[in-house]
């Protein structure tokens, strides 16, 4: 469990980090909380030649930007989970962050790291998809904005290029019309989700907007679009039938915890429960 040898760069700013990434290209990996990368290096499944440490690059922090919140990529899950501004304006994100791993993980792991890793079994992608948040990516040519819906490209692959760095996560402020719930289905408390369903619903008896993000239901994180479409403009009585379509057009993985059929079944049950809780 000893990683192969590597060089180490501690970036003092996003610009320094990007410069290091430009210099080393595919041989470099960004180190934030290290909770996915370091285990893979210890198992020698990842053998980067250079680690670019961004934990002191000034990328942590939470800012109220009027109609949305700006969360620095190096902000820890713990800080997201316990921040008063996030709790007030985007409680669903704080709630999901609090379900990640265990306290040790949450004190090291970061929101940017969790998203940039692009693991569909992670909890953050589903909530960012449902929030329709945006990611700010910095590269040698400056910053660009990527909608969450375009961020997750393939298995463990995101829109962040090898010479780019995820620097900010933007999420909207939610008004009182929104209700939410995250149904995270795990084997033990600290495990990855077998399946998760994140419901975010704006409703006043009639559902004006329903969004369902699914965790671990494909090679990339996805939304349950058939369920969402079946709910728009409907009363909450439509939830059971709509949730039954949560796994439509999904291609979930099979593993020791669940084969694809069981995952599809869980997705429908968990989506129904999340939606009912969100409007309840």
């Amino acid at each position: 469990m000893i990683p192969a040898s590597f060089d180490y760069v501690r970036a003092g700013s996003a610009e320094e980090a990007v410069a290091a990434l430009v210099e080393h290209g595919d041989e470099a990996k960004v180190l934030a909380g290290g909770h996915s990368l370091i285990p893979m290096m210890r198992l020698r499944l990842a053998v980067p030649e250079v680690l670019v440490d961004i934990t002191e690059a000034g990328l942590a922090g939470i800012t109220d930007a009027g109609d949305h919140l700006v969360i620095g990529a190096a902000t820890t899950h713990h800080d997201v989970a316990t921040d008063k501004v996030i709790e007030t304006h985007c409680g669903v994100l704080a709630h999901v962050a609090a379900t990640i791993g265990d306290p040790q993980v949450r004190h090291r792991g970061t929101i940017g790291g969790g998203l940039a890793h692009g693991d569909s079994a992670g909890d953050l992608p589903a909530v960012l998809l449902a929030l329709e948040g945006t990611m700010v990516v910095q590269g040698p040519g400056g910053r660009r904005t990527v909608p969450a819906s375009e961020f997750f490209v393939d298995y463990l692959e995101t829109a962040v290029a090898a010479d780019e760095l995820l620097v900010e996560v933007h999420v909207p402020k939610l008004d009182d019309s929104w209700g939410w719930d995250y149904q995270k289905f795990t084997r033990v408390a600290q495990a990855w989700a077998t399946v998760g369903a994140l419901a975010l619903v704006s409703s006043n008896g009639t559902i004006s907007d329903a969004r369902v993000g699914l965790t671990h239901m494909g090679s990339v994180p996805i939304r349950a679009s058939a369920t969402e479409a079946a709910l728009a403009g409907q009363s909450t009585d439509a939830i059971a039938d709509a949730a039954a379509r949560a796994a439509d057009d999904t291609d979930p993985p099979s593993d020791l915890n669940a084969d694809a059929d069981f995952r599809r079944h869980l997705a429908t049950v968990l989506s129904r429960r999340a939606l009912e809780a969100a409007v309840g």
Partner: peptide, 15 residues
């Protein structure tokens, strides 16, 4: 196939 604690579930106090 259960070669690490990711796949082999040893429960903890919260369980």
């Amino acid at each position: 196939q259960t070669g690490s604690f990711v796949d082999y579930y040893v429960p903890g106090a919260p369980d």
